[in-house]
Computed example of a mutant assay.
Amino acid sequence: MIATRIARTVHVAAVAAAFAGALASAAAADDNVAGKGDKGRLDGIRGRQAVIKVSGEGRSTTAPDMAILQLSVVKDAKTAREALDANNKAMEDVLAALKQSGIAERDLQTSGFSIMPQYNYPQNNDGGNRPPELVGYQVVNGVSVRVRDLTKLGEVLDKSVTLGVNQGGGIEFTNDKPDAVITEARKAAVADAINKARVLAEAAGVSLGRLIELAEQPDRPEPIPVARSMAKEFAADAVPVATGENAYNVTVNVTFAIEQ
């Protein structure tokens, strides 16, 4: 029994001595850092590198070389069969005319189709509920058209309406292969970011270090319409169209190290 108590006492004393030694080592380390002054403190946090982070924007413009039209044929009739037959005939004429105008098969794509009942809602003057009356059906057939020769755009619109297109209004000017103009926008964005970083470094009294990170924002640049004078001439009986130009914007995020 006495031997057990002695063993426990020796164990506790050993733990206490080890703990005291750890405290002494920590205090000595603190004294060592304090003896170095501010430089010692800076060395302690130098694992976090000082950097400059900036965003750069670049823009490049070009004339569009393609238009995408959204056209629809809408027909109403007493029965769904009659409405569909009338719509089919009109759309067949429209598609034939588009092909005759030089639109390739690959540039014609059905973009929507619907058959909808049409109701008449009688006025209720006696306070009772009167059910709606079915009066007919409406068929809508939409087509997406890529026009690659913009000199024919007005003619295509005019013929389409003449042959049965009676709903639409969607038109988008774009570029078939915008890679070259997007490359120019990227170069401008990086140059803008570098210039911003240099200005910030100069204002802060430091030197710009190595490039740490360069990333483009993930969204693919899409054309933004920019107004300009129309450079194309159209036939007198065609729909007048102004093509303008497209701008492609690119944004990059850049991180530079700071050399002190």
Score class of each variant (00 low, 15 high):
191 A>H: 05
193 A>V: 04
184 E>L: 15
190 V>G: 03
199 V>A: 14
193 A>H: 03
209 G>P: 12
226 V>A: 10
208 L>M: 08
216 E>W: 00
203 A>L: 13
220 R>L: 09
222 E>K: 12
190 V>A: 02
200 L>W: 08
202 E>S: 15
186 R>M: 08
227 A>D: 07
183 T>V: 11
225 P>C: 08
227 A>K: 12
201 A>M: 12
191 A>G: 05
195 N>A: 14
214 L>W: 00
201 A>Y: 07
221 P>T: 01
200 L>E: 12
179 D>S: 13
183 T>F: 04
214 L>A: 03
176 D>G: 13
220 R>K: 14
202 E>I: 14
173 F>E: 02
192 D>V: 03
206 V>R: 11
186 R>D: 03
204 A>W: 06
204 A>M: 08
229 S>L: 14
217 Q>K: 08
174 T>H: 10
203 A>I: 14
201 A>G: 10
179 D>M: 10
194 I>Y: 13
194 I>H: 14
176 D>K: 15
224 I>C: 03
182 I>M: 02
208 L>R: 08
176 D>M: 13
232 K>Q: 15
191 A>Y: 04
194 I>V: 15
182 I>V: 06
205 G>V: 13
226 V>S: 05
182 I>W: 01
217 Q>H: 06
218 P>D: 00
187 K>A: 12
217 Q>F: 03
186 R>N: 06
215 A>P: 01
199 V>E: 13
200 L>P: 05
175 N>M: 09
212 I>V: 13
208 L>H: 07
194 I>A: 14
218 P>C: 01
230 M>R: 13
197 A>Q: 06
191 A>E: 10
230 M>G: 13
212 I>R: 09
228 R>A: 13
189 A>F: 00
216 E>L: 02
224 I>N: 05
201 A>T: 10
196 K>W: 07
193 A>K: 04
191 A>P: 03
198 R>C: 07
210 R>H: 14
230 M>Y: 05
221 P>S: 05
189 A>G: 01
221 P>H: 01
207 S>W: 10
231 A>W: 09
177 K>W: 07
212 I>H: 03
226 V>W: 05
211 L>I: 08
215 A>Q: 01
216 E>S: 02
222 E>Y: 06
177 K>I: 12
232 K>F: 12
229 S>Q: 14
224 I>Q: 06
227 A>Q: 11
214 L>N: 00
181 V>S: 00
191 A>K: 09
194 I>M: 14
225 P>K: 06
221 P>W: 00
173 F>G: 04
229 S>W: 10
197 A>C: 10
198 R>G: 10
191 A>S: 13
209 G>W: 12
202 E>K: 15
229 S>H: 11
204 A>I: 05
187 K>C: 04
187 K>P: 03
223 P>I: 04
194 I>K: 15
179 D>Q: 12
225 P>N: 06
185 A>T: 01
221 P>I: 01
194 I>T: 15
205 G>F: 09
188 A>M: 02
224 I>A: 06
190 V>T: 03
209 G>E: 09
181 V>Q: 00
229 S>Y: 11
228 R>P: 04
193 A>P: 02
191 A>D: 09
179 D>T: 12
197 A>H: 06
214 L>P: 02
215 A>N: 01
193 A>I: 04
228 R>G: 11
223 P>S: 04
190 V>N: 01
187 K>Q: 12
205 G>R: 10
215 A>E: 00
203 A>G: 12
224 I>R: 09
183 T>A: 13
198 R>W: 07
